[in-house]
Simulated scan of single mutants.
Amino acid sequence: MTRRRRALSVLLIGAAAVIGVFALGHLGGLRINLSPSYPLGIWRIVPLDREVAIGDLVMICPPPTSAFRLARQRGYLRSGLCPGWLSPLIKTIAATQGQHVEIAGSVSVDGMPLAGSELRTADAQGRALLPFAGGVVPPGHIILHSDFAGSYDSRYFGPIPAAGVLGLAHPVLTIRP
């Protein structure tokens, strides 16, 4: 075998190994979080055997709506394997169906202020952020939140279908930025 063929073989085997590790990780429920909303690193999706509840930290596929297409264009979301080729979000469930959400400078759920929910009028690039109007969370929907000030969450996109929940999000190997 020539030196060039040997080098090519090593390169191909290495690439196949890396792809294999990522594929096994994906099939095993592992995901990489590169968003500062929660610690950076490797997270595991733990399937839910119950309904989602307030306070659950979940990994969820956002619906392929115009709000999320814009979020992808602006760089708030990365490409991924969710519908519309969006990446999953890691967020905390702040409200479920039937609860009243009020948005006025910050977020309140059923009259109780949500910590770390202050609204921003613009993103880090100075582009306008329009808040969700508020209202009652419809059946089958949830309100998502992160107390990270720059988080793109339901403060801006409103309720999303709970059917997109992939499972609970558990940190495996993470660091705080």
Results as ranks from 00 to 15, higher is better:
residue 11 L to K: 02
residue 176 R to G: 06
residue 98 G to V: 03
residue 114 L to P: 13
residue 24 L to R: 02
residue 111 G to A: 11
residue 17 A to F: 12
residue 45 I to P: 00
residue 105 G to R: 08
residue 123 D to K: 04
residue 71 A to M: 07
residue 4 R to H: 04
residue 112 M to F: 09
residue 15 A to P: 09
residue 34 L to A: 03
residue 10 V to S: 10
residue 102 E to V: 07
residue 97 Q to D: 00
residue 50 R to C: 10
residue 34 L to F: 02
residue 164 G to D: 01
residue 48 L to T: 14
residue 147 D to H: 14
residue 155 R to P: 08
residue 169 A to F: 12
residue 100 H to N: 01
residue 86 L to A: 02
residue 72 R to K: 14
residue 176 R to P: 09
residue 67 A to S: 12
residue 87 S to L: 00
residue 166 L to Q: 10
residue 28 G to Q: 05
residue 79 S to L: 05
residue 65 T to W: 08
residue 14 G to V: 13
residue 25 G to I: 07
residue 75 G to I: 09
residue 123 D to Y: 06
residue 19 I to Y: 02
residue 64 P to F: 09
residue 105 G to P: 08
residue 81 L to H: 08
residue 131 P to S: 12
residue 117 S to P: 13
residue 102 E to C: 02
residue 145 H to Y: 07
residue 88 P to E: 01
residue 127 R to A: 09
residue 131 P to H: 11
residue 30 L to W: 06
residue 12 L to S: 09
residue 82 C to L: 06
residue 102 E to A: 13
residue 121 T to A: 12
residue 175 I to S: 08
residue 86 L to H: 10
residue 168 L to V: 11
residue 21 V to G: 00
residue 19 I to A: 13
residue 167 G to H: 14
residue 65 T to G: 02
residue 143 I to Q: 00
residue 114 L to T: 07
residue 175 I to T: 13
residue 97 Q to Y: 01
